[in-house]
Amino acid sequence: MPPRLRLCTQCLHRLHNKRTSLPKYLSTASAITPAPPIHQTISSPPPLARFPPTQPPSHKPPEFRKSQLHRQYTSLLRSTPLLLLFQHNNLKATEWMSIRRELHSALQKTDETLSTDLAPGIKVQAIQAGIFESALLVTEYYHPSQQLNPTASTPHPTDPSIQSSATVANTTPNPADPTLTHSLSTHAHTLVAPHKKSHPLRTLLSGPLAILSFPTVSPQHMRAALSILSPKAPTFAAPTRRANPGYHDASVQAGLQKLLLLGARVEGRVFDTEGTRWVGGIEGGLDGLRGQLVQMLGSVGAGVTGALESVGRTLWVTVEGRRGMLEEEGRGKAGDGKEDS
C-alpha cells in the first residue's frame, strides 16, 4: 500500500537521514531504565526536615538573648578546662578596662617566658549566673552520645497503618522531638532537671559573677592571673610599683578591691579559694607535677627494692657470721687437739 501521507522524495530523504543521525544514547535511553534499589522498595528515605540542620528547634525561642547566652556558655564550658569564678561588686567600665589591660600584659609576659601563645585565649567576662548554671548542668550531666538516640523515623512505604498525612518525627519544628539532641533541646532540659540541686558550684552561682577562662590547664598562667586579680603574698605577690607602675593606677586598684575570688572549676572539679591557689602554686606547671610524680614513684621503687633486699642481706650476714663462728670454733678445737697431742 502506498503511504497515505504523500511526501516529496527530498523530504523523505531528509527525514530518513535525520532518524539515522539521532544520537545513540537517546535511542537506547528507554531500554535501560534502572530499577529502584531494593532498600528503596522496602523503606522510604526519611522525609526532609523542615528546618536547617544548623538551627534545630530549641526549648526556648532561639531569638531570645537567654537562648544565645546558653549556647555561648555551653560552648565555653566544653572548651575550657580551667575556670576561675569571681564576684564583681559594681565595677565601673574604666576599672574593667584597666584590669583587663593589666591582666593581658601579665599573661603576655608569662607567654614570652614559656614561649606559648595562650594570652589571647584567656578572658574575663561577666556572666548571667542563672543561665550559666543551666549551661553548666547541661555540659556536665547531658551526654547525647551515651543516651538512646532515636534517629529520624523511616516509615515503611506500604504500611497501611501509616497515613500519608501522618506527621513524622524530625519534620515539624517541635522542640519536644526526641530526635533533637542539642543542648538547647527539651530533651536535654528534662534530663538535666533532677541534678539541679546537687551541683557543687550551685551555691556560688548567684549574685554578680565574672569568670576567667583558660583554654588549657596552665598553672603558670593561672599564677600570673591570680597575682594580678587576687594577689596574696608570697606565692601570688602583686607586681611591685617599680616593676609594673600601671598596676598601681587608681582605677586598677579600685577595681581589684571590688573583685572577689570565690572558687574555680578545674577539669570538672570544683575548688575553693585555697584549692585554687594550690593549683596556681604548682611549681613548673604540669611538667613540674609530672616530674614530681616520676621522682616519687622512683623513690618508692628504690625503697621497695631496698626492703626486699634487706631480708636476704640480713640472712646472708647471719649465715656468714655463724660460719665465721664455726670456723673459729673448729680452728680452736684443732688447736686444742694439737696441744693435747
Binding site: 564576684q87 561588686n89 559594681n90 565595677l91 565601673k92 548567684s206 549574685g207 554578680p208 579600685a254 578591691q257 571590688k258 572577689l260
Partner: peptide
Amino acid sequence: CRVFLAHLPANAR
C-alpha cells in the same frame, strides 16, 4: 553577705 556587698555603690571603698 555577697549580695549585700554587691548593693554597696561603686565608690563605696
